[in-house]
């Protein structure tokens, strides 16, 4: 039986790469983004929505449950970043970042966990960032939204453990995607310098950790946060 994986933010970047990767492995992939999908595959379904819109997320998860009867894996990949001094960060920016990053992760985790509970199996992978562990200047709000996700990940991992659902988080280093295209080069260089291994992260690095978290054999791995590149709290 094909595994069903739901990935948020699949229009571009890491999300799209992951969707195509899991399709190539024979998974059924359910994706979403605020604009139309860019993946064409008979095993792919795309939903156009804002991840912080509760009603739309509920509908997406129920539609998926109706068609495939299960959801094995959830990757809360959708996220937005903002680099700014906190004194010049607007209230609206904070709301947008927390809505997409934290609220999106919360709503998807809650709704998909309901499906996973019934099947007594599930793997949830959330996304944090090395900026959270590093308390990186200029990333206060983005890192705070990810810090919330880290704590949430560890707490809900206990709440859903009785249902054989694991919840973990990956903290990537900068990867050359749209998310960091506006960040000055010297800032990125300074960040890479804080890593034990001083290079950009790659899709392969991220896939490797996600593959580990979602492996059937990882049933005893939960509430863990893995940062790439040798960063730690």
């Amino acid at each position: 039986m094909k595994k069903v994986i739901l990935i948020t933010g699949t229009r571009k970047g890491i999300g799209k790469e992951l969707a195509e990767y899991y399709l190539s492995l024979g998974f059924i992939v359910i994706g979403c983004s605020r604009s139309p999908g860019t993946i064409v595959n008979s095993d792919y379904r795309h939903h156009e929505l804002d991840v912080s819109n509760e009603k739309d997320v509920v509908k997406m998860v129920r539609t998926t449950k109706k068609e495939f009867s299960r959801i094995d894996i959830l990757l809360n990949n959708a996220g937005i970043a903002s680099m700014n001094h906190f004194l010049t960060t607007s209230y609206n920016t904070v709301q947008n970042i927390f809505n997409t990053n934290f609220l999106g992760t919360f709503i998807f985790s809650r709704e998909v966990s309901k499906v996973m509970m019934k099947q007594k199996y599930g793997r949830i992978v959330n996304y944090t960032t090395v900026a959270s562990a590093l308390r990186l200047e200029g990333e206060a709000v983005y890192a705070a939204s990810k810090g919330a996700i880290e704590n949430f990940t560890q707490t809900i991992s206990k709440e859903v453990a009785p249902y054989n659902i694991t919840v973990n988080a990956i903290g990537p280093t900068p990867v050359e995607t749209d998310l960091i295209k506006t960040v000055p080069k010297d800032k990125i260089a300074a960040l890479l310098d804080k890593q034990a291994i001083k290079r950009f992260g790659t899709f392969e690095d991220i896939k490797n950790v996600i593959d580990f978290f979602i492996d059937d054999k990882s049933e005893f791995i939960t509430g863990q946060i893995i940062y790439l590149g040798g960063i730690h709290n």
Binding site: K55, K59, R62, K114, M117, K118
Partner: peptide, 24 residues
């Protein structure tokens, strides 16, 4: 609380099937 969570999940699904409305 675990049984309550299970009841809530089932109820949401049945309400959705019966009334064609997605409630949380």
């Amino acid at each position: 609380s675990l049984a309550l969570v299970s009841v809530i999940t089932d109820l949401e699904e049945r309400i959705s099937d019966e009334f064609d409305e997605d409630i949380v």
